[in-house]
Structure formats: C-alpha cells, structure tokens
Design a protein around this nucleic acid. Sequence first.
RNA 1: GCCCCGGUAGCUCAGCUGGAUAGAGCAAUGGAGUUCUAACCCAUAGGUCGUAGGUUCGAAUCCUACCCGGGGUACCA
Length: 442
Amino acid sequence: MRDRLAKTIADICKDLFGTDVRIELTRPEEKFGDFSTNAALQLAGKLGTKPREAAEKLAAKLREDLGDQVSEVTVAGPGFINLKLSDRALFESLETAPAQRYAGQEVLVEFGDPNPFKAMHVGHLYSYIVGDAIASLLETAGAQVKRLSYHGDVGLHVAKALWAMQKSAEPPKGDIGRFYAEGAQAYERDEQAKAQIDALNAQIYANDPSLKELYDQGKKLSFDDFDAILKTLGIRTDRRYLESESTPVGMEMVRRNTGKVFKESEGAIVYEGEKSGLHTRVFLTSKGLPTYETKDLGLAELKHKEYPQVALSVIITAHEQAEYFKVMLAALGEIQPELAKKTKHLSHGFVSLSSGKMSSRTGEVYGAGELLADVAKAAKKQFPNSARDMQLGAVKYAFTRHRLGGDIVYDVNESISLEGNSGPYLQYAHARARSVLQKASN
RNA sequence: GCCCCGGUAGCUCAGCUGGAUAGAGCAAUGGAGUUCUAACCCAUAGGUCGUAGGUUCGAAUCCUACCCGGGGUACCA
C-alpha cells in the first residue's frame, strides 16, 4: 500500500514538474490523515517555487489519479499533503501480505549464548527474547531462519564450577550456578583455591580423562537447565555451537594468516585494528593460547561451512562486546571479505530491575529462571487464573518494547498490568476485538 | 587519555535518513458510566528535548565542543 502510493506520487511529480523526488510517506498525527508526504516541500526547494502552490497542484492530480484509493487529499501547514485512505483501501491493505524482502533466502541469527557451568541470567534472557523476535521478524520477511547459539564449554569459568563440584559431598544436581558462584568466590579470596582452580583449568584444556565424568555431568546439568527455560519461553535453537568446536578452526585461520593479517607483537599474535580506526586486540596469547576473538573467527568459518548460502548472518550480544566485534569483523574482513560483509552484529544494553533486585542471597546474578518464577508469582497473586501465555507475553513485550541500544529497566508489576503499555494489555485487546467480531458475524 | 552507546514530562519510554502546536503509558488532579470479557471514557496539569555554539527557510533530529551515566580500551570472556 505504502510503496504503491509512494510510486504514484513520484510518477506524478515527474510528470508535473519534471523532477525526481524521493518520496517520504510518513504516518502523521491521526487528525491529519493516514499518510503524509513532504514532496511539495522538497520540490519547492529544488525548483524555487512556493511550496503551497506545488502542493495544491500535486494534490489536485492525486485526487484524480488515486480515485477510490483515498477519501481525502488535503494540503496543510507549510505544504504537506495529507492522504486519508478509503475504507476499501484500508480493507485491501489488511489482506496484503507483508513484503517478502528475504523471500527464500537463508538467514542466520545467533543469540542467547549462555555459558554452561554458569547460571543463565537476565542479560541472557534479554538476548534470547530480542534475538528470537528478530528471527521471527526475518521469517515474516520470508527468510529461512536458522536460530543459533554459541557456548563457552572450556575456560576458567568451567574450572571454577568443577572445583566446587569436586568439593561437594553430594552428587551434583539442580542449580549449577551455585557451584560456579562458590568457585568464583574462592578464586578471589583463597590463594590455595586459586592455585587448585588454575591447575584444574590446565587439566580441562588438556582433556584430562579423569575429569570427564564430572565435566559431562555438569555440562548436561547446564544444558538441561537452559532447555527448561527455553521451553518455558517457547524459543527453539536449531544449532548449538561450542567453543571446543570453533577453537581449532579459529587457530588454524590465525596461523594461516599470521604475517599477512595478523602480526607478532610482544610474543603474542595480534590484529592491529588501528588501521581501520579501531584498536589492537590479541588473538593468540604469548603462551600460544587462543582468545575469544580467535574462537569467534572459527565460529564464523564453521557457520559458513554449514550454511554456505546465507544472505545475512546476525549476531546479537550485550553492548560490552560491541567494539570487540568491530575488531573481530575487521580481521574477518581481511580473510573472508564477502562473509564479513554479510555478518551484522547487533547489541543491546543491560537489564536492571525497578525493584533494585540484581543479585540473590548468594551473590550470584539474578537468574533468568528466577525472574520467570517471580513474574509467575506476581501474576498469580493479581490474577489467580492468569495463563502461562499472559506471563510470557508480559515478559517478552517488556523486553522488546524498547529500541535496541540503551539499558532497560524491567518492572514486574508494570509488565503484567492489564492497563497501559504492556503485553497483557495487547493480548486482552486482541481477545476483546475478536469477541466483538465474532458476535457481529453471528 | 582515546573509542562506542545513552541523557526527551515525576517514572518507563516513542520520536532522531531535519519539517506542521514535541507524543504514549503509568503516576497526579477533577469528572462520567455498572459491564456485549470496560481492551475503560472525558477533562486538567506536567517538558530549558543534558549544556553552549554552528549549519538551515526550518533542528529533539545534522556538525563541533563540553557536562553527566554506562561500556570498552593487548594476552579474561
């Protein structure tokens, strides 16, 4: 509808004034109409005529050419042309399918990315909800979307959790996050524990078989926990990548390109981002160990191998990684230019709670599951019969109603409110509207 | 220090590829209705659009400087 109108207006401008104009059709305040264009203002600027005169001429022609599409064409203010759609056009637009910009194309969307052996916190929840929404949007635009996630299954955080699991008398079960929290605290406070954890970390890197059983237990526990939360959220993941997969691929890429893309500096292998206005980052440490950037390079290559036909690859993370990704993508751009061009990093801010609740009693971060449970509790209290869908709608809407970029504040009570800017409000409005329609047709 | 993001009504946020008196929800104040799932309705009040310059016929929107908050800034992720 919008595109068709814009084209008609552009054609008329060309006919009448012999000039090409980039037509902007905006949604003005309701009282002005359904669409509004500043085409006449643009024309006046180009031709040096009075805006209102150009607007009147344009409007007259539009009334003629648009026929039953519009019920009103008016000129207002300095020379805006306001269009009011006819009922017929309005109904037609309802039946028009959305634009299929990515029709039939494969698109990857990576989001969520919680690390096993740690709790999934509200930041991950934000990433999952935003990422899933973006994936759905792309699906609506016709894309064949693959939802991906990436998980750090090796590293110091694993050692911290394993250390606490080893010390525990009982077999590990339930919330894995508490083991991590215990290990992380000991690592900070206790020199002896720190040494033990560092040793454990080396063992993990060396794939020590004596750790395998505990490691596998912990990993399973983590992913079972993630799965439960994702099931509640109704979010699926098509492919999970692990750091242990991407690491060898990335190391190979860095080695192959050392001397070309990467440089040796102070014993480490680095990428000098300064040449593209960024900063230098280490890819291989002086001990020869891969950093996150190398692993991400490998991940990009892994995705490329499995999905060679992608039109677009989106990665969604928190804001803290924004500049890191610029450097990583700049390096990738020198190795695989076409791949880097198709990769787009989007970042979101941090979540804070209006209640001020950020960490639970143990000093861990506020968990994703914990938030979901708190919402369910608050919803049940206010609306004893509230459905799961209502709670989910509340959380998802509260997290997606903001523009991406800034930090967001989450307020449980506001999110479950039946009034105002909330998910349940929309759901209720929808239900009522359908009810009215149904009764009208009986 | 340098780089990135944010700074709009008491609160949470839209608007930021320049355009019509800066909008919404919540909260506040004053009213109306007792119901077809009332998703409420009407009205009032509330804003130096972080600050100061600049560009423009026109700036919340573009440019510059500065202030405040968050993040990043070589061997963590």
